[in-house]
């Protein structure tokens, strides 16, 4: 369980986090989403005691991370794939970390096996690909068999196989009852991995919901085809819907659901040739939500050319 309460972080004039509060539950994969610069990494760094908050607190299982004596037994974290000394071998990197928390060498061999790096255990990290370094970071996080796992953009720069591996690893960690929090700026990836989503923008919490709840929030409309469109449009307008022709002979009705349209058409004896409820994708919902909150955005191509 991770609880973040009123977390505020100021870097000079920049407000990176603005009274951010949320809780992360065990047993599910929680996605921490936001555009670049939204404050995800800052929040994770504060949760892990690497940065000091300007105000507020972040507790893991009721305690600040920085007070833990043997934190690797409780929390595993991957913040940056490039965080191992390039001159050490994978095994040396892990043994150094393990030693500091009283973890034996047998466990080092086990996690190297678990993440698929056993064969390159004695090669220098400097020669590793990004995917191998990500795996090494996850191996380090798993050393102490922690109940809480945090990862910052673990899928960044990975190929399809690597992303699938991370996804299945995180899902199985959550299935074992662990608390799993991972950050990403890509909704597409999160939609496949996370059971619960925290969306932030400009340092504020925008949404704390499941992917299904987020989808339900999307503005829906219904595409209706009828050989008598003019009559149907009048009927739907009388139901309170806003109706627009889609330009291809069909009508787009918003503000009324498909079932109501079907019932009303039947009652008025207007034949329907098509009735399609349309929902926004999770990606569209996310972009809409964070559109105002994105810190830095490129101009649309046309605007930029002007």
């Amino acid at each position: 369980m991770i609880s973040v309460r009123g977390l505020t972080k100021r870097y000079g004039p920049t407000l990176a986090l603005d009274k951010l509060s949320f809780e992360v539950r065990p047993g599910v994969v929680t996605g921490f989403l936001g555009p670049n610069g939204a404050g995800k990494s800052t929040a994770l760094r504060i949760i892990l005691g690497l940065h000091h908050p300007t105000a507020g607190e972040a507790l893991i299982r009721g305690r600040p991370y920085a007070r833990m004596r043997r934190p690797m037994h409780e929390v595993g974290a991957v913040l940056d794939a490039d965080a191992a000394h390039p001159g050490r071998t994978a095994a040396q990197h892990l043994v150094c970390l393990a030693r500091s928390n009283g973890i034996g060498r047998g466990r080092v061999a086990a996690v190297l096996e678990q993440v698929g790096l056993a064969e390159v255990a004695h090669r220098r990290v400097g020669g590793f690909s990004l995917g191998m370094r990500q795996r090494l970071g996850i191996a380090a996080a798993l050393l102490g068999d922690p109940a809480v796992v945090l990862l910052d953009e673990p899928a960044n720069g990975l190929d399809a196989a690597g992303i699938r591996w991370i996804r299945s690893t995180l899902r199985s960690l959550a299935a074992q009852g662990r608390t799993v929090l991972l950050s990403s700026h890509l909704m597409g990836e999160m939609a496949l991995t996370a059971d619960h989503l925290l969306v932030i923008g400009r340092g504020r919490l925008i949404a704390d919901a499941s992917p299904a709840q987020l989808r339900a929030r999307a503005e829906r409309d219904v595409l209706v085809r009828s050989p008598r469109p003019a009559e149907l449009a009048r009927l739907l307008t009388s139901l309170g819907a806003s109706v627009t022709p889609d330009g291809a002979g069909a009508l787009v009705a918003a503000g009324v659901d498909a079932a109501a349209i079907g019932d009303a058409a039947a009652a008025a004896a207007i034949p329907l040739h098509g009735l399609t409820p349309r929902g926004a994708t999770l990606e569209e919902v996310y972009l809409e939500m964070t559109g105002d909150a994105a810190g830095y955005r490129a101009l649309p191509e046309e605007a930029a050319r002007r």
Binding site: L50, A66, M72, D80, A83, P86, A140
Partner: peptide, 16 residues
Amino acid sequence: EFGTGSIGPGLLAVPR
């Protein structure tokens, strides 16, 4: 450690 970023894992392992 500051140069290679390994101060991160170092502080995660020994946060005091």
